[in-house]
Simulated scan of single mutants.
Amino acid sequence: MGDLTVTRFGYGAMQLAGPGVMGPPADRDGALAVLRAAVELGITHIDTADAYGPRITNQLIREALHPYPDTLRIVTKVGATRDAQGGWPPAREPEALRRAVHDNLETLGLDALDVVNLRLGNAQGPQPGSLAEAFGTLVDLQHDGLIRHLGVSNATAEQVAEARGIAPIVCVQNMYNLAYRGDDGLIASLAEAGIAYVPFFPLGGFSPLQSEALSAVASRLASTPMSVALAWLLRRSPNILLIAGTSSVAHLRENLVGAGLALSDEDLAELDKIGR
């Protein structure tokens, strides 16, 4: 990501918060153990947001890992907050973005953030519209030395192009997985430009991926459907970075091993039919 080097298999911290990504986890010690295990396993890319909890996942990351290893890169996002009902209302006004960046710096215990993604759209997905004012605010904060690199999340292809016309970006974080393939063209264009693509909900999100073809390939490889889905993403394009999340050390290890599955051309052809 830009001049930052990260492992292609990263870790998404959203699941460390309580139910609905609100409040503290039921097992705080378990959450801390997952974060420490991720770093011990060699993962150097952790994705988070101060809206998770809110503030909970960032606090856990700081408690578990600070002072941070020199190789660890923490990627956060701004542009949405939380309401009392657990919703994700947009918060992209300049003052709200400035406050969110400072909140992330405080909760993570950092002087500058490695990467900040501007979250666009809403809970239903990307929405059309200009990002110029909001993205310009983050560019100003980058010039102030509070942000090293910029990205966008939940964005349309047009918004990605608009952001790139304002300032360099190092990543795009959108929903994408075996069954949800709307960004196939965008992934290809970003790969040509050397920009990372980071799929969220790589395993389907709140509704896990289910497919007879996926199960068949997993059975043939003596693996699990979720492991195959992660391995497919890594084969899909060299600019894809994974941030699969979990609140279990055992599941984290399972995901990491599964992502290294060797998929044959036959496997890939069978899997590619799922999203088409």
Rank of each mutant, 00 (worst) to 15 (best):
S227P: 05
Q59M: 11
P69R: 08
A17V: 00
Q124Y: 10
G12R: 01
R36H: 12
L72C: 12
N122D: 15
R164E: 15
M175L: 08
I169R: 09
S189C: 08
V139E: 11
V75A: 05
S215M: 09
R119K: 13
V139Q: 15
V172P: 06
D272T: 02
L209S: 14
R28V: 08
N174L: 03
L35G: 07
G109T: 05
Q127W: 03
A191N: 14
L256C: 08
V139M: 14
S237Y: 03
S153M: 05
S248Y: 06
P25T: 05
E270S: 05
G121W: 08
G12A: 03
G260Q: 14
L242W: 09
S189R: 15
S153V: 02
F200T: 04
R253N: 00
V228Q: 06
A38D: 02
V116R: 09
L252F: 14
Q210I: 07
A123E: 15
M14L: 15
I187S: 02
D27M: 14
R276A: 14
L35A: 13
M22L: 10
N255T: 01
F200V: 01
E162V: 09
G165N: 09
V228K: 04
T156K: 02
P208W: 13
P199W: 00
T5W: 05
S248G: 11
G30R: 03
S247G: 14
A222W: 00
R220G: 15
R55I: 07
V21S: 05
D111K: 15
A222I: 00
L209D: 14
H45Q: 06
G79P: 06
D29W: 03
G109K: 11
L108Y: 07
F200C: 02
Q159S: 10
T137D: 07
G42C: 13
L72P: 06
R235Q: 03
A80W: 12
A244D: 10
V115A: 13
P128M: 08
L72T: 06
L178A: 04
L230P: 14
R119D: 03
Y68E: 06
G245R: 05
A51I: 12
L60A: 12
A100Y: 06
D47H: 04
S247H: 10
D114E: 13
V152H: 05
Q210F: 14
E63M: 09
T48R: 02
L252T: 00
V217Y: 11
R28I: 04
L233D: 03
I56C: 15
S237L: 05
P90F: 08
Q124R: 15
W88D: 12
M175N: 07
A38Y: 10
E158N: 11
F201H: 05
F206I: 10
L186S: 01
T5S: 14
H102W: 02
V6S: 01
G165C: 09
W88V: 09
H45Y: 13
G87K: 12
A13H: 03
L60R: 12
P128F: 06
G245P: 07
G18D: 10
W232N: 13
D114T: 04
A31L: 01
N239A: 07
A38E: 03
E133Y: 12
N122W: 15
A161L: 12
D27E: 04
A250S: 10
P69A: 07
R164T: 06
S219Y: 00
A38R: 04
A231K: 11
A64Q: 08
D114K: 07
L138A: 11
T76V: 01
S223H: 01
T5P: 02
G86E: 13
